[in-house]
Design a protein around this nucleic acid. Structure first.
Lengths: 150, 150
DNA sequence: ATAATTGTCTATAATATTTATCGTGTATAT
DNA sequence: ATATACACGATAAATATTATAGACAATTAT
């Protein structure tokens, strides 16, 4: 299960993606994004900050400030967002590249049968999820009328 | 990430699977399984009970009692164990068959772009993980000497 | 029978994570 | 200047995870 926080992040990016697709896209305030996506404003604040620090969106401070996409939707990876917001994707800490950690109880990583089996599953899974971008999400509803950010 | 509890469950099943492969397999006590797998005994108690209630292992009470596999390793699904121990595998509650739940904030499931994209990823993932069995884990270290349950 | 052994079940507790909210500071446009 | 809007750290409530403890129930050996 992805966390509620990740859902909020995705909804926010959908809002920003929809905005970016308009004729005259504008930076949107946290308040506006919160309203359009149905996210608690003060919580969204932190989420957008993390997403910004990850280099996905840009912020402008002060009057007429707000947030906007920094990259094109096709270049915004959902799996990277997942790692940013929810932490490692790997099923075991010892299988995460970015956040590798030895299991406390591990005697020998090379012969661990749990690790070996999950490694195979995980590589296959990575191929799927690593290819997913915000563009895929934005397009996936193109044939429908939308309610809110969904 | 799978939980520590799930790791313990897997280790316990590896111990029972190894035992079942012996010439004269015996039911193993919780204490023995805990020792062989490096799991806190009183915690393992609960885990084994859940696994038993899921119909995967059998228990015998009283003197000379213990636990043993109820099915052949090839018929013990890792994804089912995951569902039993860690709960739904689906990335969203609205994508889980067994534990379906509408998202609180959802206005229209049919047009939700988050749901739509994760659904595709999830189905692909399911194909991979649903095919995984305890036998795969037991075999995966067959060419090596093992330390403990790993 | 009874004592020893071993699983069953409920309650409780410590810790970590998730999901926020609040206050204050900083930058910017007008 | 001042209103507006993001930045950042502290804190808190709720929930989940990771156990531990105690009392009970079933079975077997003697």
């Amino acid at each position: 299960m992805i966390t509620q926080k990740m859902k909020y992040a995705l909804k926010a990016l959908l809002v920003l993606g929809d905005e970016a697709a308009k004729d005259r896209p504008q930076a949107l305030t946290i308040e506006e994004i919160a309203k359009r996506s149905g996210t608690p404003k003060r919580f969204l604040e932190h989420i957008l900050l993390e997403v910004r620090n990850a280099g996905v969106i840009a912020s402008i401070r002060g009057r007429s400030g707000g947030y906007s996409l920094l990259k094109r939707p096709a270049e915004i990876s959902i799996s990277e967002l997942l790692r940013t917001i929810d932490g490692p994707i790997a099923p075991l800490p010892c299988l995460s590249r970015r956040a590798y950690q030895r299991c406390d109880d591990c005697t020998d990583e090379a012969t661990c049968r749990i690790r070996k089996v999950f490694a195979e599953v995980f590589w296959s899974y990575l191929v799927i999820i690593d290819s997913l971008t915000l563009e895929d999400m934005l397009k996936s509803g193109a044939d429908q009328v939308m309610g809110a950010a969904q």
